[in-house]
Every structure is written in structure tokens, then in C-alpha cells.
């Protein structure tokens, strides 16, 4: 149902590096799962709206007033690598 090319494409979109072995397992498992859920394809859903929110609520707006948030120091505390007061990452390829 799903081929290796689709697995590679979806893995790239997902930003996941998968080994060859993982790609094959993923192909088998995703195909198996999709087979089990295939029955929703036969339902007549043309006139059914999608669910966007389960509880009826109105939009909530926050008050636009300055307040204390994380300091730069706190925000950077857990970062694997920091440079010049910001997050450091490798260069773009």
C-alpha cells in the first residue's frame, strides 16, 4: 500500500533520518495500519462537516498589556548550544 519512495518522502517531510532497515519496517507497519483503517474510505461523508472544535466556545483574546515573561537567560538555559545571546545551530546546507 505504501512504497519505499513514499516512506522516504514522508520521512524527509517529517525531518526524520531513518536507516534502510527502519524504512522497510516503517513501510510494512504503516501499510498494515492503513489497511486496518481503510474502512473509512467507503463511508458516505459528502454532506458531513469536519469537526473543528468539540466544545462550543467563543474566541478568547488576551489583554494586550506588557507582563513579565522568561528572561533571555532563562530562555537559553536549556539550549544545547548558545552563541551571542541566541540559539546556535549549524549552517544551512
Amino acid at each position: 500500500m505504501i512504497d519505499r519512495d513514499t516512506v522516504r518522502h514522508v520521512a524527509r517531510l517529517s525531518r526524520l533520518r531513518l536507516s534502510d532497515e527502519e524504512q522497510e519496517t516503517m513501510r510494512e507497519e504503516l501499510s498494515g495500519i492503513l489497511e486496518h483503517i481503510e474502512h473509512i474510505q467507503s463511508l458516505d461523508l459528502d454532506d458531513v462537516p469536519i469537526t473543528t472544535h468539540v466544545v462550543e466556545v467563543e474566541n478568547v483574546l488576551g489583554e494586550d498589556v506588557p507582563h513579565e515573561e522568561l528572561s533571555v537567560e532563562e530562555a537559553l538555559r536549556e539550549a544545547p548550544e548558545v552563541a551571542g545571546g541566541g540559539f546556535s545551530v549549524p549552517r544551512m546546507g
Binding site: 539550549a79 544545547p80 549552517r91
Partner: peptide
């Protein structure tokens, strides 16, 4: 980038893919 583990990588795409993989 901001927290958690990170993998060694040459460029940003490899960084994302290896960190998450």
C-alpha cells in the same frame, strides 16, 4: 535547538534529521 538532545551534524537539515531520528 532550544532544549533537549542534539546530534552532531554538518548542516541544518542533517542536524534536524539526525537529532529527531
Amino acid at each position: 535547538m532550544r532544549y533537549g538532545a542534539r546530534a552532531e551534524a554538518e548542516d541544518l537539515l542533517e542536524h534536524f534529521e539526525r537529532t529527531r531520528g
